[in-house]
């Protein structure tokens, strides 16, 4: 039984002044799936996310979300369709209390439409979302200025910014990087919970062990190309992957 396809990328390409950041990448994402995307530094993972979410326009190829063509659509419209992403380099609004950071997505057309009427106190909604994602309300963590929070909370805040949109797909760009083992251990159950709730997840990661606990399927990128696609065990046995990914890893 194959799950319904929610996102489809068709031979998408992008060059930056001669650099083939992404070339001819295609894949399909099933509803409710957890897809990992791995690859060495500079292999085009972030660019691929930017292409899918409308932050960078592709030179060629198509992106299809829920059976409609979203290629070239402005990024905010794509977010409003329920396809959201986190940023590898996060910049929350440091001077604002953490929960105020969510006021921005909560003012988007998508939220205003779906929550109309029930959206009484928008601040309260923001605090609820943060509490759900591990900001202890009793310790007043949601009220602390975002700038004073440790990295683990900032990553959660970035995820919460996506969740505020009640999205169908979340693409996480290196949400584990820079976190300690225990911080990751705190984040994993949250992601599992999202998966249970039927949210489709795409995780770009360098932390393979943690990724493989979640991912149903993995895509490997190298020099802008997709070099493997399959279940984690098979992919890691692939000769090309070993050469490209693990080989380079060892050299470092």
């Amino acid at each position: 039984m194959k799950a319904e396809v929610i996102l489809e990328v068709n031979s998408i390409s992008k060059t930056f002044g001669g650099v083939h950041a992404v070339s001819d990448v295609s894949f399909a994402l099933g509803k409710g799936e957890v897809l990992g995307i791995i690859g060495p530094n500079g292999s085009g993972k972030t660019t691929l996310v930017n292409l899918i979410t409308g932050f960078v326009q592709p030179d060629s190829g198509k992106v299809i979300f829920k059976a409609s063509d979203i290629t070239g659509m402005p990024s905010y419209k794509i977010a409003n369709l329920g396809l959201t992403r986190t940023f590898q380099v996060m910049r929350p609004y440091y001077s604002l209390p953490a929960f105020k950071n969510l006021i921005i997505p909560l003012n988007s057309p998508r939220v205003k439409k779906t929550r109309s009427g029930r959206l009484g106190d928008i601040d309260a909604v923001a605090i609820d979302i943060l509490e759900e994602i591990g900001f202890e309300r009793d310790a007043r963590v949601p009220y602390k200025p975002a700038g004073s929070l440790p990295l683990g909370y900032l990553k959660r805040l970035e995820l919460a910014r996506c969740l505020a949109l009640s999205p169908e797909v979340i693409i996480c760009d290196e949400i584990f990087s820079g976190l300690s083992m225990s911080e990751i251990a705190g984040l994993l159950p949250l992601l599992e919970k999202l998966q249970m709730q039927g949210v489709t997840l795409v995780m770009i990661e360098h932390r393979l062990r943690e990724l493989f606990r979640l991912a149903d399927r993995v895509i490997v990128m190298n020099f802008g190309q997709k070099i493997a696609d399959g279940i984690p065990e098979d992919v890691m046995e692939d000769e090309e992957v070993k050469k490209a990914y693990l080989g380079r890893e060892r050299k470092k």
């Binding site: 979410t53 932050f55 402005p74 990024s75 905010y76 419209k77 977010a79 409003n80 959201t84 992403r85 940023f87 996060m90 910049r91 929350p92 609004y93 921005i104 997505p105 003012n107 988007s108 057309p109 998508r110 939220v111 910014r161 996506c162 505020a164 949109l165």
Partner: peptide, 15 residues
């Protein structure tokens, strides 16, 4: 927020 970081605002579904 737009002044600070317009990318995150776009990703939050705001034009």
């Amino acid at each position: 927020a737009i002044k600070d970081n317009d990318q995150a605002v776009k990703a939050s579904g705001i034009s």
